[in-house]
Design a protein around this nucleic acid. Structure first.
Length: 444
RNA sequence: CGGGGUGUAGCGCAGCCUGGUAGCGCAUCUGCUUUGGGAGCAGAGGGUCGGCGGUUCGAAUCCGUCCACCCCGACCA
C-alpha cells in the first residue's frame, strides 16, 4: 500500500531555529521547535501534522495491545453530566481541578478528567448477570484537569489524551486476573515504543493490597525519584509468548517480586534489605501509566451489581487502567534526544525516513530523489521528502531536529553515479550506497 | 494557592532607570553571488510596544488597575 504523498514543499512543518523562551525542558522545547505543537493557552495545545502523526502512532500501539489483551474499544464523551459524579460523591470531592460547566438549560455538566462514573453508569444498566462478566472496556479520549500550574509542555498539560480501561468482575480473584492482563499489556505496550517502563508499587487506596502500580520510565528530567532492583531492566517481555487466557501471575510476579518504588512509596530499609548493593538503582522517572484496583468503590456508590449463581446480588469488582498517550510523546522525547534534536524510536516515528534532496534544481538529483521517494512510498514506507530548494546545512539541521530514524541523502556528488547516502539518526553513521541497497536497508 | 519573573514583528532580544513618536539578530519577500552541516551583499515588507485608565504639550518609557504567560514551592496522570 502506498503511503501518503508528503513533500516538504507542501507539508505544514513550521520548525523554529531558536528556542522559545517559555520552554524549559527538552521535550517541550523540541516539540515546539520541531513544529509538532503550538500552545493555545496554558496547558492546552494544538497538534500540528508532525505531532499528530506521533500521537496516532502511539495510540495505535496502545490500541493493538489493549485488543490483544482482550479489552474492547469504545468511546465515551468528553462532557459528562454532573449527576453521576454526585452519585459517586466525587462532584464535591474533586475540587477546583474539575472543570465544571453549565449548559443552556442550566444543567450542571463537567469536562471529564476521567470516566469511572460514565462507564459504571453504562455497565450497571446493561449488565445484570454474573454470566456477563468479566468485562474489560477501554477508550482513548481527551480529558481535562484544570491544573493549578500546568508545565513541561505536553507532559503536564490541562488537556491531555489518555487511554483508560475499566474492568468489571464478579469477585476478587477475577478482578486480579483482569489486573494482571493489563499489567502485562502495559509492559508490552511500552516496550513496543522503545521504552523500558518499570512497574512500581503505588498507593493502593482504601482496599489495601498490592494492586496498584505506576509504570515509570527513566529520564533525567523525570518528576520523581525512583528506586528499583536493577534486574527490572533485564526482562524482555516482547520475547515472551503471552497467552492472556492463562494464569499470568507467574509472569507478573517476576516484576512485583523485585523492589521498585517511587519516592512516595519508598522504604529505604526494605530497599537495603531486599536489594544487594550492586543492584540498587536510583534514578529519576516519568510516570506513563497507572493501573489500579479499587474494588467496589464506584459500583457500591452507584449501585452496579449483578445476580450471582445463587440469585443473590453481587456488587461488581472494578479496576481502572490509564496510559497518558499525549504525555508519552513528551516522555519518549525526554528519553530519546540529543543536542541536535529528537531521536525517534522506529515504532513511533512520524516518518520512517526523510529523503533529503540537497539540490532539487540539479537534474540528476531531482530524478534520483523522485525515484527513491516513489519507491519508498510504493513499499508502504512513511517517507518525508525534503524537496525544497535551500542550503544543505539547513536541511540537515532540520532533519536532525525532527529526528526521523533514517535520512536518505541525495546530493550532486553521488547522484550522477546513482549513489546515495544513508544516515542513521541514532548512531550518526553514514554509508554511501546504491539507491537499491539504501532502500533495502530502510525497508528492513 | 503562596513567592518570584516576563509581556516590544513569526522566533530570540535591546530600548524603559533619565518621556520626544520604535530598533537589532534570525525568519519572510526581491535581485545578484554562493551552494554537503543553520551563507554573503543590496533592497523591501511586517508593530494598536498585553488591555484599560491616569499624569503630561508629548508615554513602549512614569502612576494605577486588569489580563496573559513562565519559573520555584504545595498539588497531580
Amino acid at each position: 500500500m502506498k503511503s501518503k504523498d508528503m513533500r516538504l514543499s507542501e507539508y505544514f512543518l513550521p520548525t523554529l531555529k531558536e528556542n522559545p523562551s517559555e520552554a524549559q525542558i527538552a521535550s517541550h522545547r523540541l516539540m515546539l521547535r520541531a513544529g509538532m505543537i503550538r500552545q493555545s493557552s496554558a496547558g492546552i495545545y494544538s497538534w500540528l501534522p508532525l505531532g499528530e502523526r506521533v500521537l496516532k502512532k502511539i495510540s495505535e500501539i496502545v490500541r493493538s495491545e489493549q485488543n490483544i489483551a482482550g479489552a474492547q474499544e469504545m468511546l465515551m464523551p468528553t462532557i459528562q453530566p454532573a449527576d453521576i459524579w454526585k452519585e459517586s460523591g466525587r462532584y464535591d470531592a474533586y475540587g477546583p481541578e474539575l472543570l465544571r460547566i453549565r449548559d443552556r438549560h442550566n444543567r450542571d455538566m463537567l469536562y471529564g478528567p476521567t470516566n469511572e462514573e460514565q462507564i459504571t453508569e453504562i455497565i450497571r444498566s446493561c449488565v445484570k448477570s454474573y454470566r456477563d462478566l468479566p468485562k474489560l472496556l477501554y477508550h482513548i479520549q481527551w480529558k481535562f484537569r484544570d491544573e493549578v500550574r500546568p508545565r513541561f509542555g505536553i507532559m503536564r498539560g490541562r488537556e491531555f489524551l489518555m487511554k483508560d480501561c475499566y474492568s468489571f468482575d464478579f469477585n476478587y480473584g477475577a478482578a486480579r486476573r483482569s489486573y494482571n492482563k493489563m499489567f502485562v499489556a502495559y509492559l508490552r505496550t511500552f516496550a513496543r515504543m522503545g521504552l523500558t517502563a518499570i512497574p512500581m508499587r503505588a498507593e493502593s487506596g482504601p482496599i489495601g493490597g498490592d494492586m496498584s502500580h505506576e509504570f515509570i520510565i527513566m529520564a533525567d528530567t523525570g518528576e520523581s525519584q525512583v528506586f528499583c532492583h536493577a534486574d527490572c531492566f533485564d526482562y524482555n517481555v516482547l520475547e515472551e509468548l503471552v497467552d492472556y487466557q492463562s494464569d499470568l501471575e507467574p509472569l507478573v510476579s517476576r516484576w512485583t517480586d523485585l523492589y521498585a518504588a517511587t519516592d512516595e512509596q519508598h522504604d529505604s530499609s526494605e530497599f537495603e534489605r531486599s536489594v544487594p548493593p550492586d543492584k540498587r538503582c536510583e534514578a529519576r522517572g516519568i510516570e506513563v501509566g497507572h493501573i489500579f484496583y479499587f474494588g467496589t468503590k464506584y459500583s457500591e456508590a452507584m449501585g452496579a451489581f449483578v445476580s450471582g449463581p445463587d440469585g443473590g446480588r453481587v456488587t461488581m469488582e472494578m479496576g481502572s487502567y490509564g496510559i497518558g498517550v499525549s504525555r508519552l510523546v513528551g516522555a519518549i522525547i525526554e528519553a530519546n534526544h540529543d543536542d541536535d534534536g529528537i531521536i525517534w524510536p522506529d515504532s513511533v516515528a512520524p516518518f520512517r525516513v526523510g529523503v533529503v534532496n540537497l539540490k532539487p534544481e540539479d537534474h540528476k538529483c531531482n530524478v534520483l530523489g523522485g525515484e527513491v521517494y516513489e519507491k519508498l512510498r510504493t513499499n508502504g514506507i512513511d517517507t518525508l521528502y525534503e524537496d525544497r530548494e535551500g542550503r544543505a546545512g539547513v536541511k540537515f539541521a532540520n532533519m536532525d531536529l525532527i529526528g526521523l530514524p533514517w535520512q536518505l541523502i541525495i546530493g550532486p556528488r553521488g547522484a550522477a553515479g546513482g549513489r546515495v547516502e544513508l544516515k542513521s539518526r541514532k548512531t550518526g553513521q553514514r554509508d554511501e550506497l546504491s539507491m537499491e541497497d539504501a532502500i533495502k536497508r530502510v525497508i528492513a
